[in-house]
């Protein structure tokens, strides 16, 4: 039995990638849950907002690279990120002004707003396709690894490698900072509190003199920042492809529902729950089992589901939560 190598294998193939992915999902789910809490609809355009923000960031990155501007060992895309966020926020605010605001004034049913968000999804999808095309794009530059497999092996003398890519470390750090800033904002600032008040009890918030337009504006800005950052981190870590961003809507929604729609803390927990389940269920555990039970000889890969079915994992979690606890693990709004 070789516990050390087994642990390293789990770290390398499950914990590290799932933590990274979980951080990306958490950011996306935070955006969904904030919009749900304040604007009161499930935003189907979330994935395409992420794609749009990432596309802009990639284009700015290319511009910076052609000017010879880099960010040292860090990816140039991090330098470009603020531009991506700014333009995405501008687009979202424009969309709100032209599209969503009307439905707020007529107090349309949430399901109408979901339908409207499908229209916005089409628009953003089309704009992204025109801007940057439909092909897969890799845009990570800078240092490749924080810890490389060979370094780790020579340090520790273990047979099993542990590699941490710099994009993985950056994802966790950036997501952590952003979440910290968001929670600080919501808990401590007057505007943040007014947003929570608006989400909690719209009528009473209006009665207290809270300006709904301001709350909505700030919400879209935060949603834009979260979506763009989530998209760029995902793209750095894996790659950018408009369609796979669209598909991210499912695990992101699952994360938000699992945590409890409208509950920011729940969105983060949900992101990690979905990510860990997805990675753990689609990982082939044969290697780990080999270290732990060397005498056990099996030709099965010990993989519960093939990676082609990773969305089935989000979906299953979603269904389990809908069946047993529709308000989510952290109390959200289910009805």
């Amino acid at each position: 039995m070789d516990i050390l190598n087994a642990i390293v294998a789990i770290l390398n193939y499950v914990i590290v990638p799932a933590t990274t992915y979980g951080a990306q999902l958490a950011l996306g789910a935070l955006g969904v849950t904030l919009i749900y809490g304040i604007l009161r609809f499930s935003n189907f355009a979330q994935g395409d907002t992420m794609a749009f923000g990432t596309a802009i960031t990639i284009m700015v990155t290319w511009g910076l690279q052609s000017l010879g501007i880099g960010f040292g060992p860090l990816p140039t895309a991090l330098l470009a990120l603020p531009f991506g966020i700014a333009i995405t926020c501008a687009l979202l605010l424009g969309t709100d002004r032209v599209v969503y605001r009307y439905y707020r004034t007529v107090r349309a049913a949430p399901v109408i707003l979901v339908m409207v968000s499908v229209g916005v999804m089409f628009l953003m999808n089309g704009i992204t396709r025109i801007l940057i095309g439909v092909d897969e794009i890799k845009f990570a530059d800078g240092a490749r690894f924080l810890i490389s497999a060979s370094e780790f092996k020579s340090w520790t003398g273990l047979t099993e490698p542990l590699a941490i890519r710099s994009t993985q470390a950056i994802t966790v750090i950036v997501a952590g900072l952003l979440v910290w800033a968001l929670f600080w904002f919501l808990a401590k600032t007057r505007t943040g509190k007014s947003m929570r008040a608006y989400a909690d009890n719209e009528d009473l918030a209006l009665l207290s003199g809270i300006n709904p337009d301001r709350v909505v504006t700030v919400t879209w800005i935060i949603a834009g920042a979260l979506a763009t950052t989530a998209g760029v981190l995902y793209g750095l870590d894996k790659s950018f492809k408009a369609f796979s961003y669209f598909q991210l809507v499912l695990p992101i929604f699952a994360a938000a529902v699992v945590g409890g729609l409208g509950n920011p803390l729940g969105a983060i927990a949900g992101g990690f729950i979905v990510a860990y389940s997805e990675v753990a269920v689609t990982y082939a555990w044969k290697k780990v089992a080999g270290y732990l039970f060397p005498s056990w000889d099996t030709d099965s890969l010990l993989q519960l589901l093939s990676t082609d079915y990773k969305f089935a994992v989000s979906f299953t979690i979603l269904i389990i939560v809908l069946l047993f606890k529709p308000t989510g693990l952290f109390k959200g709004k289910a009805y």
Partner: peptide, 28 residues
Amino acid sequence: KTSLGLRSDYLAIATLGIGEIIVAVLKN
């Protein structure tokens, strides 16, 4: 059976999921 009777958004999300999964099954 699972998602009707809850918020209208939940059906939208659940059907999005079943759609992707059916296609994934047919592909794989």
